[in-house]
């Protein structure tokens, strides 16, 4: 069977040729020397100005309040194109639940595709960066690195996604207001004035939003952030506010992270969530990383204190195998208690 018809190949060749014409050669070095495919870093073309990569995550879920299931949870494709030194375009396209194996057998009824991110970036210097398009909402740590190969657990704390929209369609401006030898203070402002480019399906969905973030980081020490967003919630037609704070510190063999989010609706109960996670990075041949996380969530109608403990194994630098147990997870929409496992690979 031919997977690629001649017209398709011609179209692909045309696109690549067009990008080549639009991409200036900035250096005299042979492109062959710096381009090519690197596992976990994508396919680099045109002297690294076009990068095509992504990741695949396959999840096994054995939770007591949902049917057992096994599925390729995410297949995500990134495309980065830098036509000029200070300009970049970035897109992330995701196929979810393409094939699911559960009590109903093998099916594709939950399959879907989404546009996770699509933006243009202008960065005239190290202290200023402007992005226009659809981006991840700059609140907290987890939301900005939520991809399965980058996080240590299969499950995601509610505090990182249940109190704000995970994506923002509009503008994000980052300004480095202080840069010391070892310390940065970055101020971020973001806003949304149009509908979401592709609905994120978040419990609190932005229709209009304006927010900001301050992040203080040290080169090899702790970093901490404060975030705030005021938004018109498309799901219940109210203006709401969410405040977040986060902390990350990798010291010696330990990585400690924590986040908290508080949602204050104009009417109704204030809800909030927080977690603390500890990861141990041993100098061991098998690259096994024990992980423990405690979370508290108050959703107004239910309270929950899930405890996650597990192990992440990194057989190669772009691959992670995770297995974890969850206890204390009753009465929420996350499936309850039990076991989760996943294999995630950056490509």
């Amino acid at each position: 069977m031919r997977l690629s018809t001649p017209p398709t190949r011609s179209l692909l060749a045309g696109v690549i040729a067009a990008l080549a014409l639009l991409t200036p050669c900035a250096t005299p070095t042979s492109a062959a020397e710096v381009d090519g495919y690197t596992p976990g870093r994508g396919l680099a073309l045109f002297e690294n100005r076009l990068i095509i990569g992504g990741y695949l995550a396959m999840n096994l879920s054995l939770l007591d309040q949902t049917p057992d299931r096994f599925a390729p949870e995410d297949l995500s494709l990134f495309v980065t194109w830098q036509p000029a030194d200070h300009f970049k375009f970035f897109g992330e396209f995701e196929a979810e639940d393409a094939v699911v194996l559960d009590g109903s057998g093998l099916h594709t009824s939950h399959a879907g595709a989404s546009l996770e991110r699509l933006y243009a970036e202008w960065e005239p210097s190290d202290v200023l960066r402007l992005r226009l398009g659809k981006m991840l909402t700059p609140i907290g740590i987890w939301n900005l690195i939520h991809a399965a190969p980058l996080v240590w657990t299969v499950s995601r704390p509610l505090a990182t996604m249940d109190f704000f929209d995970t994506g923002v369609t509009g503008a994000v401006l980052d300004v480095t207001v202080l840069r010391g030898d070892d310390v940065d203070l970055v101020a971020t402002a973001f806003g949304q004035a149009t509908d979401q480019l592709d609905d994120t399906g978040a419990p609190h969905a932005f229709r209009r939003a304006a927010g900001g973030r301050l992040e203080l980081s040290t080169t090899q020490g702790p970093r901490a952030g404060l975030s705030y967003v005021r938004f018109d919630d498309r799901n219940d037609d109210h203006w709401e506010s969410t405040f977040g704070c986060d902390f990350f510190w990798e010291t010696g063999r330990f990585e400690l992270s924590a986040e908290a989010s508080v949602n204050d609706p104009s009417s109704g109960a204030t809800t909030w969530g927080a977690y603390t996670q500890l990861v141990y990075h041993p100098r061991w041949t098998l690259r096994l990383h024990p992980v423990a996380r405690i979370e508290y969530v108050d959703l107004g109608t239910v309270e929950r204190t899930p405890f996650v403990f597990g192990m992440a194994w990194k057989p190669s630098l772009g691959t992670i195998v995770k297995i974890e147990g969850i206890v204390g997870g009753d009465d929420t929409n996350l499936g309850g208690e039990g076991l989760l496992a996943s294999l995630a690979v950056l490509f």
Partner: peptide, 8 residues
């Protein structure tokens, strides 16, 4: 429960 025991 079965899942809890297995995860532990």
């Amino acid at each position: 429960k079965r899942h809890e025991a297995l995860s532990v």
